[in-house]
Amino acid sequence: MNLSRPARIALRIAAGLGFAVIYVPLTLVLVNSFNIDRSSGWPPAGLTLNWWEQAWHSNGARAALWTSVKAALGATGISLVLGTLLAFAVQRYRFFGRESISFLVVLPIALPGIVTGVALNTAFRAVLEPFGVGLGMFTVVVGHATFCVVVVFNNVIARLRRTALSFEEAAADLGADTFQIFRDITFPLVRSALVAGALLSFALSFDEIVVTTFTAGPGVQTLPIWVFSNMTRPAQAPVVNVVAAVLVLLSVLPIYLAQRLSSDTAGTSRI
């Protein structure tokens, strides 16, 4: 479209303002973790590294961080297996209900988290408690895996769509059996999509709060839950600020890596 010069300039300014709106709050969180003022007033009266030191020694935050990492690793492992199996089935086979699979996979993330959370909570209590399994790490992992499947599925299926079957057929013609083909041909082809899907699903799980609230039980505290429950406590404010800053930095990393690994994916969106 041949835009007039003023229109171009106006668009440029509007987009610049838009990006400013997107990035100012995130930058503020980073700056604020150094803010000398405990109540996070603006502009900062001075900068200090004290809070970072204090956060480093905060046992609560540290324990929560490990819980989050463990939960995210577990959920990522399960969703890698389930998502890959589904992607292969949907892309390589024709069967009844195939069209609705992609809808089914998106559902856990598209429905309000509170609905998914409450549903899983009541189901866990009804089904698992008779076996002596209470709400805890296990249920958190199960809950997270349910909505992480979609990112692995999307990444793998996008890759499968773009890879021709001819490599595998050639390998079969040369005498390789099903397992050899998978090990030597198929797996290397989808490997980077798997890594990208795993990174994204780790990030998704690491950041989740709503489903976690309902599946975690009293003893398990992930980092987002820790931040949420300490957000309103003035005494913890500086540590919360540092943890928030760390979360911003940590969340950027997987996206950057996933983007580098797999250009067809990083799903243009989360879904």
């Binding site: 990035y23 995130l26 950041d207 709060i209 931040v227 928030a244 969340s251 969106s269």
Partner: peptide, 9 residues
Amino acid sequence: TPLWASYLV
């Protein structure tokens, strides 16, 4: 990038 930054943060 900000899409993936923590919801809570």
